Amino acid sequence: MPRKHVVRTHTIRRMNFETLAIHAGQPPDPAYGAVMTPIYQTSTYAQNKIGEAAYDYARTANPTRTALQDCIAALEGGKHGLAFASGMAAIDCVIRLLRPGDHVLASNDVYGGTYRIFKRVYEDYGVQASFVEMSDLDAVRAAMRPNTRMIWIETPTNPLLKVADIAAIAHLRDAVRAAPQIVVDNTFASPYAQQPLKLGADIVVHSATKYLGGHSDVVNGLVALNDDATFARLKFLQNAVGAVPGPFDCFLVLRGIKTLHVRMERHSANAMAVAAWLESHPRVERVIYPGLPSHPQHAIARRQMRVFGGMVSFVVKGGPEAARRVAEGTKLFALAESLGGVESLIELPAAMTHMSVANSPLEVSPALIRLSVGIEHVDDLIADLKEALEAR
């Protein structure tokens, strides 16, 4: 048997975000003192006695996954964390809290996969979904129904980067007898930029594939929350349905999280510079970025976000064909779906990530371009965009 290594412990709740990102849920391994959380690549565990074991089967729990779950809980300021095989698996698990006849009120500009699962999967099982402008509190209030059990917020949204006032919506919710749960998809912001649980949300979901992983090499989803009873139900569903991540994927996300704070600062600084440059370019019709004073919800973003993130959307003059030429004309910005990696990406949401909302009230303009601004030197990124915009 390996000797037990003496591990010095610490009280994580007193630490700043940057320290939590590196240490939360990740003390040195007690067996040999490994500083990095080991990859427990096993499907089952030996038990000293029947029914007496910290771990029994890897679908139910895995030490590497436990470390990631504890880490995301700490970063979001919550008590509990859960990890899943993808962001959509995390979303699916949370939606399973609803029952036939329940109504969910969602942002009218959500990721295409979120719209698809509500309208083309769960409506078949009796869960009603409607979509509203979450930045308009009067519209949110008017759209509430007696059977509304969940309010689903993306902020900033994908791809129009609308910003919802989480605290204000939570206050509005508290005045409703049914008190629906507030779920916030925090993927675009990351917990470094904003912590929805501290603003009144009940559950936070992430596609950890994006900023949390940060290197475009893993698919993963995360959930964080405080309520013990809701956690127990989600934990049951996580095990019963089985859409769990492998230990190596959890290891990759933990590795990415360790640099989240420094990456988000660079993503945000680069995105601000790119957005400001685009706004001044004569061939650009409109730029959407929460950090710009021209953004309709800039004041809300300043109040609830630490940084504004790395996502920028814009519309070029000349319509869809001009947008397509720009998207296909960049060299550093790779034409690709997804976001949040260290490398910069460009895409046309209407033809790529948001095809599932075509011919729906959430349809995206084919002239809209979405950037995931990476951490390269910003001068090189601007030069790349300039060449693509000005090409004949």
Rank of each mutant, 00 (worst) to 15 (best):
F84D: 11
F118V: 01
A391P: 00
M355W: 05
I91P: 03
R3S: 14
Y55F: 15
T11P: 02
Q181F: 12
H171T: 14
T187G: 00
G256A: 09
K258P: 08
S344W: 03
A322N: 03
G309H: 05
H171F: 10
L362K: 09
A90S: 12
A273L: 10
K210V: 01
R14M: 05
V121S: 12
E52W: 13
A391L: 04
M264V: 04
N239P: 04
G291L: 13
L82M: 12
A179T: 06
L234G: 02
A24C: 12
V35Y: 08
L199T: 02
A275H: 05
G87H: 08
L75G: 06
S135D: 15
S135P: 07
A327Q: 01
G221C: 08
P28R: 10
V357R: 00
P282L: 03
A334V: 10
A275D: 04
I182L: 14
M1T: 14
I91W: 14
N226L: 09
L197S: 08
N108W: 11
V244Y: 05
N16L: 09
A229V: 11
G246Q: 13
V163Q: 09
K386N: 15
H10S: 14
N359C: 08
M305Y: 12
R65F: 10
H5S: 07
D29S: 14
A201M: 07
R141E: 10
E76A: 13
M355G: 11
R263G: 01
A46R: 15
A232N: 07
S280T: 13
T157C: 08
V307S: 13
V315R: 10
H80M: 08
L332P: 00
D138V: 10
D217T: 04
M15V: 03
N359K: 15
V132Y: 07
T353I: 04
F231Y: 15
R8A: 15
Q297F: 09
N62W: 07
G87M: 09
T230Q: 12
L332D: 00
G78S: 10
L20W: 03
P100L: 10
G33N: 07
A301T: 12
G214Y: 02
I151N: 03
D165T: 05
V127S: 01
D56N: 11
S360K: 02
G246A: 14
N108G: 14
A129R: 00
A85D: 11
E154R: 00
R13W: 12
P159N: 04
P28T: 06
A164V: 06
N239Y: 12
S190N: 00
T44P: 05
V6R: 15
M15I: 02
L348M: 11
R302C: 15
S365P: 04
T42S: 12
K198M: 15
F188T: 06
A201T: 04
I153N: 03
V342M: 14
D56L: 14
A178Q: 10
L260C: 00
P191Q: 08
P100S: 11
E347L: 06
M1G: 13
L348T: 02
K119V: 15
L234V: 03
